[in-house]
Design a protein around this nucleic acid. Structure first.
Length: 289
DNA sequence: CACTTGACCTGTCCGC
DNA sequence: TGCGGACAGGTCAAGT
């Protein structure tokens, strides 16, 4: 799924829709999607109000008045879709929505609020999860301890960005930028998009990237992510925001899923290959190995 | 440690 | 139309 811009889009939508609401109940038919015991739900979720919603890397943190937090990872195909009371579908209009009547066969967790509204966690591939844990323990989770800095933070500099890569000098720049311990929130789409922007071939070894190239990659990464947030993220297949609506960044993509089409810079044809085990999109003229 | 690969799942698409 | 295989936005665990 969902990389940083998509998760941030969901966060912003949810913040408008569910802050202040009180949870009535939560249920799942798949323990892997929501592993907490019913006693946790009864004690710390039912009757708790949503106080704030944060994002760290690709993880959503829904804070509750009970001192607990609902931690959510959408992985590849997760969705968090809010449905107002008395409504059966996720978006205002079927034309801009991938989600119609909810729940559907991909619904894994259903969270109901006291006012009759519902938050659905849908996840076709079941890789994603929701878990309830004490807010004070969120930062003790392994992933949270190891994850790198937020690339869009105001105080995150190009110098710091470049320094994060030195540990991974002998791997490809694509593998390194996808490594969540190097920088947080970059996935396959924005890796390819930012590398094209910086004219760096994804297979290049980190050790061969110059200081000037790192500086360019830093600004390209921030630019593509900020643009994507502005466009509501990328919807290839499953991704929708909290209202069930698609994002439009793919209309602005320069290489991702554009194999066989023109490079916007040099008009060579975009190619698709495999780097770091992932489908990888490059311009053969602009990005030289 | 750094690095690579396969596993976790379901659905879709493509070639035979 | 059916069937097998590759592939899909992400992490993990296990291997070298």
């Amino acid at each position: 799924m969902p990389e940083l811009p998509e998760v941030e889009t969901v966060r912003r939508g949810l913040a408008k829709l569910i802050i202040g609401k009180t949870v009535q109940n939560a249920a799942t038919d798949n323990p892997k999607s929501f592993p907490n015991a019913q006693t946790d739900v009864d004690l710390y979720l039912r009757g708790a109000a949503v106080t704030s919603i944060h994002r760290r890397a690709k993880v959503l943190l829904i804070e509750l008045s009970s001192g607990y937090t609902l931690m959510v990872h959408l992985k590849m195909t997760g969705q968090l879709v809010f449905v107002a009371s008395g409504v059966r579908f996720g978006a205002g209009h079927p034309n801009d929505s991938l989600v119609n009547v909810l729940p559907d066969k991909s619904t894994r967790v259903t969270i109901t609020f006291n006012d009759g509204s519902v938050l659905y966690f849908n996840d076709q591939r079941k890789f994603g999860w929701v878990r309830l844990l004490p807010t004070l323990e969120v930062l003790e989770i392994d992933f949270m301890k190891k994850v790198g800095p937020e690339p869009l933070a105001a105080d995150f500099t190009a110098r710091e960005f470049a320094a994060r890569f030195t540990r991974r000098a002998k791997t490809s720049i694509k593998a390194a930028i996808l490594d969540q311990t190097v920088v947080a929130g970059v996935g396959n789409i924005y890796a390819d998009e930012s590398l094209w922007g910086a004219r760096i071939h994804p297979s290049r070894l980190v050790g061969s990237i110059t200081g000037a190239e790192f500086e360019l990659l830093y600004s390209e990464l921030r630019d593509v992510m900020n643009l994507s947030i502005e466009k509501g993220g990328s919807s290839n297949q499953n991704y929708v925001n909290a209202e069930g609506k698609r994002g439009s960044y793919m209309d602005f993509a320069r290489v991702f899923r554009r194999e066989g089409q023109d490079c916007h810079r040099c008009h060579a044809l975009i190619e698709k290959s495999r780097v770091a085990g992932r489908g990888t999109h490059t311009c053969p003229m602009c990005q030289v190995v």
